[in-house]
Design a protein around this nucleic acid. Sequence first.
DNA 1: AAGTGGTCTAGACCACTGA
DNA 2: CAGTGGTCTAGACCACTTT
Lengths: 242, 242
Amino acid sequence: MSNKNNDDSRISLRVRIGHDLKRRIRAGEWNAHTALPPERRLAEEYEVSLGTIRAVMSDLVDDNYVIREQGRGTFIHRGKFDKSFSRFFRMNTDGLGAADGHVLSISSRQATPDETKKLDLDQESLVVVLERERTLDGKVTITENIVLPRDRFQVFTTLSPRDLEGLLYEKYEAFAGVLINSATEVLSIRPATQTETTTLQLKAEEPVVVIERIAQDLAGYPVELRTSVGGSFNFKYRIEIS
Amino acid sequence: MSNKNNDDSRISLRVRIGHDLKRRIRAGEWNAHTALPPERRLAEEYEVSLGTIRAVMSDLVDDNYVIREQGRGTFIHRGKFDKSFSRFFRMNTDGLGAADGHVLSISSRQATPDETKKLDLDQESLVVVLERERTLDGKVTITENIVLPRDRFQVFTTLSPRDLEGLLYEKYEAFAGVLINSATEVLSIRPATQTETTTLQLKAEEPVVVIERIAQDLAGYPVELRTSVGGSFNFKYRIEIS
DNA sequence: AAGTGGTCTAGACCACTGA
DNA sequence: CAGTGGTCTAGACCACTTT
């Protein structure tokens, strides 16, 4: 344990060790496929009892930092966005697979003031922009505009769209070492533009659903701004509340 | 502990005691304002250690059965639906309070096949139907159609709309002893009908957002079917994913 | 002061996974 | 088989709320 809070005995061991482990996870001490040290070893390292380590791990599970598997070990968690996203824009004709994503172009430019704010960038920072579309049965169902901070995604400017086929978040991890962990989405509806009516093959007067996503890494730092647009009449979204 | 699973030693104490406490909670052994027995007493009653009871309580918290308050006690949980619902249909002109709900009519009829299925009713059961609207600054923003199983909401046929002003779920608890704990909502968009365009004062060609909610009691049994309709261009919904 | 939940210890034994 | 997380015990002491 090193920095600031982590020696303050006013804060419980459970919380302090939790903070430290989160820091170590974010620092990349373990990747998505290597297990964290077992409970017993962590208990020795931190010089606390097994029960305390178990309480800490329980918190990390609640916070979606790790998943535990009996007999195998404790592994760092990865969000299931593509799964959750495919719940969006689910077609009324149920039972068919999620739409495939294809990157159309990769470019680079200066961030807009809005992007600067939402990605928590410095003034006049550069961003990498991806244009992407999702197709289902050969038809374009969603268009996506994705904005990434250039300092963490520099390599992307050297890639071709073909390198980014499939699940985008796996590419973030593979090429830029960025692990997406959580996101906030805001959903709204507005009339379609002429272009959208054409490319999305919308019905007359059919408005579009716009979803603006801000995705965070394990540190909670915003690393992706994604705007998705799709037709609204085939759109369904399912929410569970408690 | 009494029934079936609860003496099967193949199942952990943690789970068995959890089941038993859930059963007791659902049976109404404690109401929303009386605390459950303290940890130490439960440990004696079930003849297990304190740590085991704490593990059980932790599960009950995760499952939204109870909330714990240090120094006060453990209380049964109540969903925060009106709070979460007011996130729906938030007007673009932010910062104003949630819409007030007013019941317009209370009636009774036979359930449709769809309602029978969704509310898990017997064939030819009766339902109580409420018509409700939500207004903001004097304007109707949402119309709601609410369907309740008559066997659990018989008293509602004797009430007047004035008895149901305000938070509806509090009335369910007060008049029918039904405690809403969780819900699933499905959101979709469709063109507005002529009537909707008038009553909701929609813009030309503005479609509506339709939200179909199935709400469950503590036992997970469906007790309310609610269909809400509102204009889509002022609609925003915020989702957090992890 | 009495009573509540929260933290923590120092173990023991069980259930599951993988080599 | 060794190593992992899961369950459980029998306490002690602390922090907070209410009377």
